[in-house]
Amino acid sequence: MILYEHVLSSDCYKLRLMFDLLGMDYERRPVDMYPGHADQKPAFRALSPFGRLPVLQDGNLTIWDAQAALLYIAERGDASSSWTARSVEERANIQTWLQVAGGPLRAVAAARARNLFGDASSEDGLLDVITIIDDRIVEQEIHGSEWLVSDRPTIADVAVFPDIALHEDAGISLDAYCGLRRWLGAFASLPGFAPMPGVASM
């Protein structure tokens, strides 16, 4: 599979993580997102209509949504189906958190982009989404699990992890979010885990 990506993008990190956690090989094709903004140019938009990284290609298939690509990698590379849904209920819950990763959590990525590159963007809902994810983890812990959806890590955790793990770049302190800090630590202990620049040691 070919991954069109940028080394500093949290959505690209998500897919690199999934490949690493599954021990899969893939080809990295760097895109000059910064400072060249090549992701906004027609050549790249031919691959990704909204001009968003990452793009995953497998043969004739082109996937230009990070969450969809994450699901695809997991379904292709995980023979045990440990990272994807094993029941109808799990599928609903995983889907919910994939939507959070592709929706409200983008506010965190936007705050990070503004701190790093000075891009103007809105901070609406920044702490809301952090609090909601923290609450979810704490609730899961009460039920004896340290993961977002199940008693094992799933693609929901992989989808949400990068933006939370890069909180310092976004100027967000997790001091008040004990659940999130424990969850980040547990995630970073997974076999195959690899950090990226800006992921604080946990």
Binding site: V7, D32, Y34, P35, A38, E168, D169, P197, G198, A200
Partner: peptide
Amino acid sequence: SSDESLLQFQQEIFLQDRIILEN
């Protein structure tokens, strides 16, 4: 080297420094 790989090589290194510097 491609422009992309030159840039991302340097940006990755600098972002490793950035988090150390801010802390």
